[in-house]
């Protein structure tokens, strides 16, 4: 399986993402600059964390206007798995690929620590490697991770089982219903504030994030590789 790590000016988790895919997962991966005009050779698209365009105006607002985003939209429509982490999640909401928006943390602080996440939905192509309601340890590092959506959207998210991760203990940022990650209706676009790519090896404090990447690959293999 071949992944693209999209790099915007100001992305800073792109190296971690690349490392997770190449060294821990053993899959193919390439960095793709934000002005790329074709993503057709890739099977999965990863939007890393960071501070694209310095978070000017709004997090992810300017990144959403870059060339590569119309290709990301195309890939989403084609059903390819798309994962946006942290700033990547913010970009996906700005692009309208995921509903809602990320606001300033309720306590106005940049929160940087490992939190407990609950896997609310383990039936997505990103989470089959987890048990339902499993508690996992994943680091967060954000100042604007306070997920917001209107009541109508929240009802829809619940009805369609689109809430994938919740903060298990006290929410660190004020998110509605402690939401930490959601998928789109089709289930192929996941956005989350916590950083699974920073939890892929016990040497760096934990490996609970690895199952997420393995789930993506497993699903892809099952649908794309024939065992004739």
């Amino acid at each position: 399986m071949k992944f693209a790590v999209i790099v915007f000016p100001g992305s800073n988790c792109d190296l971690d993402m690349y490392h997770a895919i190449k060294d821990e997962l053993g899959e193919e991966v390439e960095y793709v600059w934000h002005d790329a005009k074709d993503l057709s050779e890739f099977d999965g698209i990863l939007l890393p964390g960071g501070f694209s365009y310095g978070d000017y105006l709004r997090c992810g607002a300017m990144a959403n206007q870059s060339n590569v985003m119309s290709e990301v939209v195309k890939a989403a429509e084609a059903g390819k798995p798309i994962l946006g982490i942290c700033n990547g999640f913010q970009v996906l909401t700005e692009a309208g690929l995921l509903p809602g928006a990320l606001l300033r943390n309720k306590n106005l602080k940049f929160m940087c620590r490992t939190v407990e996440l609950k896997v609310v939905n383990n039936a997505t192509q990103f989470t089959t490697g987890y048990e339902k309601d499993e508690i996992i340890q994943i680091p967060i590092a954000h100042g604007e991770g306070n997920y917001y959506c209107d009541d109508e959207t929240l009802t829809r998210l619940k009805e369609n089982n689109q809430i994938v991760f919740k903060y298990a203990s006290e929410g660190p940022n004020g998110s509605i219903e402690d939401i930490a990650g959601i998928v789109n209706e089709k289930g192929n676009v996941l956005g989350m504030m916590p950083h699974p790519e920073r939890a892929v090896h016990d040497l760096i404090g934990g490996s609970d994030g690895l199952a997420l990447f393995k789930s993506i690959v497993k699903q892809w293999r099952e649908t794309h590789v024939s065992h004739a």
């Binding site: 105006l57 709004r58 607002a61 300017m62 206007q65 909401t93 700005e94 509903p99 809602g100 928006a101 606001l103 917001y148 959506c149 209107d150």
Partner: peptide, 8 residues
């Protein structure tokens, strides 16, 4: 399109 995010 850019200056405001009408969701929020």
């Amino acid at each position: 399109k850019l200056l405001a995010n009408t969701v929020i």
